[in-house]
Design a protein around this nucleic acid. Structure first.
Lengths: 316, 316
DNA sequence: TTGACATTGTCAAATGTTTGTATAGCATTT
DNA sequence: AAATGCTATACAAACATTTGACAATGTCAA
């Protein structure tokens, strides 16, 4: 059923590895051990393909093939996710936080917010970094936490003041992460901003961090920036991608025009990504005009990783 | 057991240190002592990576590698931990920045902004903290720097994008300072915010930091907050002062009403400060209605110190 | 201030290892 | 017959390691 069989040519195509390389990895490191036909031709399974893709990513992020070739699929997945900061320096010191999974952190953070306890909120976020990778903190803790605050605001459990206080703390937290991320010499530059009329800093920061995780060098320009400004910054910095974060439920028309304008101002070989929460018609319109719409940070991450032009290894 | 092993290439990527530098740190200072393969290649553990990350942060904040290289992990965490930054020794700097007085820092920061060099801007700000107190950094470097950027924007030398990028970086920087400041158990709580219609985060952050320096416990609520929200937060947190930052040149009437409203909602024994850039008639009107107008951060600081935070039993 | 000295990041050369790719000869598939 | 795949060997590029050196900078004493 799911285990279709493939020839080496096809596998090469969809992993981006040359047939030579695949054979070498098998021969030298037993990275995969495909079945054979009676005439000793290799027969790869879907799992083999997945494995090779993961291996490629591991190698590209600096691991040596000899060391990772024999790892299990799960280990490779973990490796592919930049799971930095996996080790906690002090297991159970005075922090007094005993959260273990993401939900605990969300709960704890929410509790801190309801009590206007900025310190607790900060410590909670900081602590979560010890347990989880940046991406998981963002997607598994911060996003849900903000959602929860939003809900509570709708139902009247929390006030706007709570939400603002939380935003301020989280913004600093994300900004700090971004600062750390910028220190690695990374690949091409991606501009991240929010177009005119959009004040959504937090989302854009999360986008910037995602870009960094995907191996790009993010340049975060903040929110509410006219299209010409974004374009000018992209040109000046020789950016290879621009990502904008949208939350616009209001004023869709102006937003659409702004995006269109931006797309026009940017040279064609520059990818333009957009994401956030927008009504379907706007998304559709944006796709029409040459923006890549990303439903989630995850899709954005995948798209960016796929775009890495470091080695134009294969073309169709 | 699950301590994974890594090659120098990978370590270099996720610490941001060049392989050269890592080797030099090992050879000269025994900063790490990784295991070796049979062919003498280095094998790093997760702990090594963490150690190197901490060392990099220590070095970037001005410590000398020779002095910190042999410190234990815990000491390094402490060094990097903002909570303890208060007792940081006055380290000497060796990061290629040759600024000596405030003006140099302003110039350097401005140069970083013109080149969209977020990293340089961050390093400049961070470095300035080593030389000057927080108050002097804020009043002597950040405020002039923002002014310079504003001027350059007026004359067309800089774009809005420059200004936004600078704001984003500075906001994170100030937010980080504020977070550090909050960790000191201090006196009474002061609420800091910006009223409805005001988006001026940076000014409010500077106000929050000033309050902290004056011995108060600032609670920063961000910008654009309705009067009722500010008042509610003040009540909930038993605040003894509220400070709002204004930049309104536009919509003075609405601003006036908002302030008046806020003053009414707060109990009379709660001081209400306002500061920023406002036209004289607004200032006058505000003074009339019981707000203390602070011309500068300096006056605000003096006023707060004079309010005897801890003991409210003595009256004038 | 100047000059001697220490610190520290970087580089180059020589050597060895790892890894990707090329070539050749033969077999199988289409 | 042409295309593709297999094995095996060979080779080259990339990468690591060590050693020695250099330049930029900071420090300290005169």
């Amino acid at each position: 059923m799911e285990t279709k069989t493939h020839e080496i040519q096809y596998v090469s195509r969809c992993t981006g590895l040359s047939p030579h390389r695949i054979r070498a990895w098998e021969r030298r490191y037993m990275a995969v051990m495909p079945a054979r036909t009676t005439s000793r031709r290799r027969i790869f399974s879907d799992l083999d393909i997945q494995r090779l893709q993961l291996l490629r990513r591991a190698v590209e992020s600096g691991h040596r093939i000899a060391k990772v070739a024999r790892l299990s699929l799960e280990d490779l997945v973990e490796l592919a996710d930049p799971q930095r900061l996996a080790v906690s320096p002090r297991p159970s010191r005075a922090s007094g936080l005993d959260a273990i999974d993401e939900e605990d952190y969300v709960r704890l953070g929410f509790h801190a917010i309801t009590g206007f306890d900025t310190r607790l909120l900060e410590r909670t976020l900081q602590q979560s970094l010890v347990h989880f990778s940046r991406r998981r903190v963002i997607e598994g803790i911060i996003v849900p936490l903000l959602g929860k605050v939003g809900d509570a605001w709708v139902t009247g459990t929390l006030r706007i003041a709570h939400e603002h206080m939380a935003s301020a703390v989280i913004q600093t937290f994300l900004g700090g992460l971004l600062r750390d991320a910028e220190n690695r010499e990374a690949g091409d530059t991606a501009i991240i901003a929010t177009p005119s009329g959009q004040r959504h800093d937090l989302g854009a920061l999360a986008v910037a961090l995602t870009a960094s995780d995907a191996g790009w060098q993010p340049l975060y320009l903040g929110s509410n920036l006219p299209a010409e400004e974004i374009a000018a910054a992209a040109v000046y910095n020789c950016a290879r991608a621009v990502a904008i974060s949208l939350v616009g439920t209001t004023n869709g028309e102006q937003l659409r025009r702004e995006c269109l304008n931006l797309r026009r101002l940017l040279s064609a070989d520059l990818s333009l990504y957009a994401g956030g929460q927008a009504p379907p018609e706007l998304r559709f319109a944006l796709s029409e005009m040459g923006l890549h719409w990303c439903e989630t940070l995850e899709t954005f991450h995948v798209a960016l990783v796929g775009e890495i032009p470091m080695r134009p290894e294969q073309e169709t």
